[in-house]
Amino acid sequence: MNEQQKTSSKQDPFSKSHPFVNLFYFVCVIGVNMFLVHPIILGFSLIAASLYTARLHSWQSVFRQFFKFLLPSMMIVLFFNVLFNHNGETVLYRFSNGKPITLEAMVYGGLLSVVLAVTILWFRCYNQVMTSDKFIYLFGRILPASSLVISMVFRFVPKFSRQVTLVRQGQQALGRDVTDGTLKERLNHGFSIFLVMITWALENAIDTADSMKARGYGLSGRSSFSVYRLTRRDWWLLTILTSSFGYFMYTVVIGTFSMTYYPKVQLSVWPLTWTSATGMIAFFLLINLPVLLAYVEEAYFKRLRKQAKHHVRLPDYFKQ
């Protein structure tokens, strides 16, 4: 039911690093992706997002999602932009009311549709990596009560879902399943199930509150415990993330990646300069960090395995 609970076939070391590192990465990556509409940056982002999604799920699921969901929504976005945006000087077609379709609007709309697709891919990775407990941990310090509520909801949702199934079976045995009878009856049966469920949920919740009180909830000076620790590697990752993001943002602010679309499409990044090249490298490092990390770790384990084999190969006389 929950995407977060599905485990992928491959290991993802980035998911195992500190939640703060995860969050920082996603805020940077998704922020850049949504707010900086630039073809080269977008291209980088698209490749990185696909790579990481494929790593967390599979290439197959990336393609499936692309054709089933992303492509249609991209078309809609493109269509919408071309229809309502009349800026730009290269007119391709003019409607009878005088409103034009322009090349510039088309380019920008196309880029925006890619923004949408890439954002959704990044959020898919986010869903997989930022599990509920990481989220709760991160907000637990600033918003302790709210994050406890979220934790409780995560406790309740599977419990309630199970209960819904049981209640449904109970109602089914009264001849009142949601598939029995006319549409109106079905709806009523749905409402009955729902009412039984909420009664159960509300009445049983009091035990939960008692159990919290019994263990001292509400005393002053509540602390917040977590199983996460900032390891040396987390510090390294943070350093890489902040420096690459910082440098990239510097190049953005000084205008290396600025772009104008109207009245005419102009890219400032070409021809390549030192700053734009290094900025791109920094960005590449930033967004591909999880995948790179995974490659490094895999290579390391491969080497370890080789070494282990080496050690295990005993001299022949032991085999006698």
Binding site: L143, F194, M197, K213
Partner: peptide, 30 residues
């Protein structure tokens, strides 16, 4: 909300309502 120092019962009630709202979707799957 944080400032109010909500009691255990308030928290549970809030969580139950949110839980119902999230799960409610599944009941009317037809």
């Amino acid at each position: 909300f944080e400032d109010r120092k909500p009691s255990a019962k308030e928290l549970v009630l809030l969580a139950v309502l949110v839980g119902i709202a999230v799960v409610g979707r599944g009941i009317f799957f037809m």
